[in-house]
């Protein structure tokens, strides 16, 4: 039994800057692709971090649920279908934590379908303030529809690593400094050495997942790039994108060809919590999954912390189950 991606979709680049709008648009596209209705979603998990007006209540997921129209009012719906929504946040790694949570919900029969949405934006919802030196994140969103299947394809275990030392990235609203402008303000501090540390953690995380998943042969010599090269044959790396060069630099550090890792294109800024879905969708659309047996999803983010999971591709050719 494993959790598989039934469909994956991105928010259209429509120039709007609402994280709720981005996530809902991606969610609707995701359902359309899967030929399902909004009533088919049992649980909605939002992993976006930076949100419209710095709203903290209700969950942004509840507002997205309403925008998509997922089982809105239990008392007044004829078939009394219930949905549950929540925000799950862990920076760029959140999407893989959500996969892990979804897997638990699906495998215990608590849900048949879980939708994971991601979206970030500058809290002012002004798209021109996103993807800048002050706020490096893109104003974009994405969605995954997850289900359980009886075969061994799909997500493997989600592995986590954390580094000691500084957080590397700090995103916060300094309330005493912003006065009445708290709905339009945000600070994102990145340490000067954060990218090098992220890269080192990413390399370490790849080796961790390989030694855990690929048993003894690799475990013997985890630091050896040559072995990683062998183990990652027919594996496409889909990673977070703290800089446009991150994926290619990681591939190089692993001794792989630069195109072994997906560089997300067409997004202004770091797609942050949406990076893995962007990378996966882009690989589908450009035919890059062909010739690969698996995708290695890898996120590194504030903390520093990482999340990694091998996704064994399903057999339909486009990487989705339908």
């Amino acid at each position: 039994m494993a959790t598989v991606i039934s469909s994956a979709a991105l928010s259209p680049a429509d120039g709007s800057g609402s994280s709720i709008g981005h996530a809902a648009a991606a969610g609707r596209a995701c359902l359309e692709q899967a030929q399902m209705s909004s009533a088919d979603v049992d649980v909605l998990i939002n992993v976006g971090v930076y949100r419209d007006s710095n709203i903290v209540e209700p969950s942004v997921a509840a507002l997205i649920q309403k925008n998509i129209g997922i089982n809105l009012d239990y008392l007044h719906s004829p078939d009394r279908r219930a949905a549950f929504s929540l925000d799950l946040m862990n920076g760029a790694c959140g999407v893989l934590n959500a996969v892990q949570a979804a897997d638990a919900l699906l495998s215990t029969g608590s849900a048949r379908r879980v939708m994971v949405v991601s979206a970030d934006t500058h809290p002012s919802t002004d798209p021109s303030r996103a993807g800048t030196a002050a706020f490096p994140y893109a104003s974009t969103g994405a969605a995954l529809l997850l289900e359980h299947t009886g075969d061994t394809l799909g997500f493997g275990r989600v592995h986590h690593r954390s580094l000691p030392g500084g957080h590397g990235v700090n995103g916060y609203l300094p309330l005493p400094d912003v006065g009445a402008d708290g709905r339009n303000s945000i600070v994102v501090d990145r340490d000067d050495d954060v990218l090098d540390r992220m890269l080192a953690l990413a390399v370490d995380s790849v080796h961790t997942v390989l030694s855990a998943e690929d048993s003894a042969a690799i475990a013997q010599d985890t630091a050896d790039a040559g072995r990683a090269h062998v183990a990652l044959d027919r594996t496409l790396l889909v990673t977070s994108q703290p800089t446009p060069a991150f994926a290619a630099r990681l591939a190089k550090r692993l001794g792989l060809a630069s195109d072994a890792a997906v560089t997300v294109e067409g997004v202004h800024g770091d797609p942050h919590t949406s990076a893995l879905i962007h990378g996966y969708r882009q690989a589908l659309d450009t035919g890059r999954l062909a010739g690969h047996d698996q995708v290695l999803f890898l996120a590194v983010g504030a903390g520093l912390t990482s999340a990694t999971s091998l996704y064994r591709l399903t057999g339909t050719g486009d990487g989705t189950t339908r």
Binding site: S53, I55, P58, L63, L72, D73, L175
Partner: peptide, 15 residues
């Protein structure tokens, strides 16, 4: 369960 029809009734954010 979340009945999001009413999600707008209580909002927390900066003043």
């Amino acid at each position: 369960m979340t009945c999001s029809e009413y999600s707008h009734l209580c909002l927390g954010m900066p003043s």
